[in-house]
Design a protein around this nucleic acid. Structure first.
Lengths: 244, 244
DNA sequence: GGGGCCCTTTGATCCACGTCAATACTGTTT
DNA sequence: AAACAGTATTGACGTGGATCAAAGGGCCCC
């Protein structure tokens, strides 16, 4: 079927100024004129199919990526094959910051579903952020946020028990879905039990058992990847009321 | 006793340009003129006694800190009292990046020995890094390095066994001492077994036992906090030759 | 719309590390 | 030089989560 509306590449391109994710992403805090400058910088968009790599560990670092649609995981792989999921990323979040330090990426970024990213050439971002103070500051905040987030994961991996880890994970997902205008209590996980387990430092069986236990206790309703949180305070209690 | 040599504050102040840590720290990659500009920005130095806080979680964020002498740990504390050491920092490394994201620090920084830091007011650092490209880039690299380092710790906490974790820790310490001109094979740890354990997600007894085991196997000679690495390849083998 | 494969769940057993406890060492204070 | 407090080592025992195993379910691709 032919489209009656002529569509050009320019039409398809969604500018930062029009993007409904701008409050979560790099444009946050910029005025309209500054956003236009950022728009010029965002060279292209790239579609990544489910299970495909956005970049691989070792790839030379050229750009960072803002997620426009879909979601990703990042992981690190050891020589002996063991791997560790280091994070799950949703729309509006930025990928690739790991590459700045050595000019090469140090982890893999893999799409959990068909996704689309905005490619932000890093040299040009540094140029522009030398001119636009608010962009510079927002970029620094985004990097810092990643550091803080990682500390939270270290806390989780280093001193929490299995059910606490999963509760923290679910509450974190809920909060991030909420920030994107979705339901805080009902969502669809894009990752497998194995990937959740790798992220949380647990085996997939342990993740599955913890889900079942939460279900028995009436905290959540689980149906495969579909999650309904029934008792948010109950989950929060799991986190804090653990005598040291 | 009176000093015969007149000493002014200016004399005491050690400029970045004179600092033997500049290759590890913020000045890396700057030309002499740029280093002078950075020097002006580094307002003051601060001495922190052993066990004292450089900053606490919740403190408002004003500056980042470069370690001139001594060493620190950072930790995160949960409401129920559990805490997690998120890192150990040595001379030339930068502390406080966690505070950028919310304008408040999100962890505690505590001196492991009597130490001294250079205070770098953050607003002024952002100003100068808008003018000095090489400073901007070095700062971004430092933040990115922290992210990469954290991913390494997540790998360690999420998928390594106790002895692998300790081996990785010792090799990391060795490498960092080497970068500072100290012996790669013989050094003094500033932190307790409990702090190492917290960092590695292990109990202090497990850390102690792993040390003893390494000693039995001739990998290291341990005498309390004094460590002599006898078989570096052996320690490395512990890390990689673990069938998944 | 059917077939195959991956994902998930659940059970039984095992083991690495945690817990509890006692003792020894070390550096610091008086 | 003695006393102390914090730190470290070592042993005995318990347990949370890993491992091994098997069956069921759902989703994706053809």
């Amino acid at each position: 079927m032919k489209s009656v509306i002529p569509v050009t590449v320019v039409d398809i391109k969604v500018a930062c100024s029009q993007c409904n994710l701008r409050e979560l992403c790099l444009p946050f805090g910029l005025d309209p004129n500054e956003i236009d400058q950022l728009d010029e910088l965002v060279g292209s968009r790239r579609k990544i199919k489910r299970q495909q790599h956005l970049y691989r560990s070792g790839d030379s670092f050229e750009a960072i990526y803002a997620i426009r649609a879909g979601s990703f995981k990042t992981d690190v792989i050891l020589e002996d094959g063991r791997d560790q999921v280091t994070g799950f990323q949703m729309t509006g979040e930025v990928l690739g910051l790991d590459g700045i330090s050595t000019e090469h990426h140090s982890c893999n970024a893999i799409a959990l579903e068909d996704s689309e990213v905005c490619v932000i050439p890093f040299t040009r971002l540094e140029e522009l952020s030398r001119e636009v103070e608010s962009l510079q500051h927002q970029f620094h905040k985004i990097m810092s946020r990643e550091i803080v987030r990682d500390h939270g994961v270290m806390m989780l991996l280093g001193s929490m028990r299995a059910e606490e880890r999963l509760a923290a994970f679910l509450l974190n997902m809920s909060q991030r879905f909420t920030a994107r205008g979705f339901s805080p209590s009902e969502f669809h996980l894009r990752m497998t039990r194995d990937e959740i387990g790798s992220y949380l430092g647990l085996k997939l069986e342990t993740v599955s058992r913890a889900f079942s236990r939460f279900q028995e206790e009436g905290l959540v309703a689980v149906q495969q990847k579909h999650i309904r949180i029934l008792d948010t305070p109950g989950l929060k209690r799991l986190l804090n009321h653990h005598a040291a």
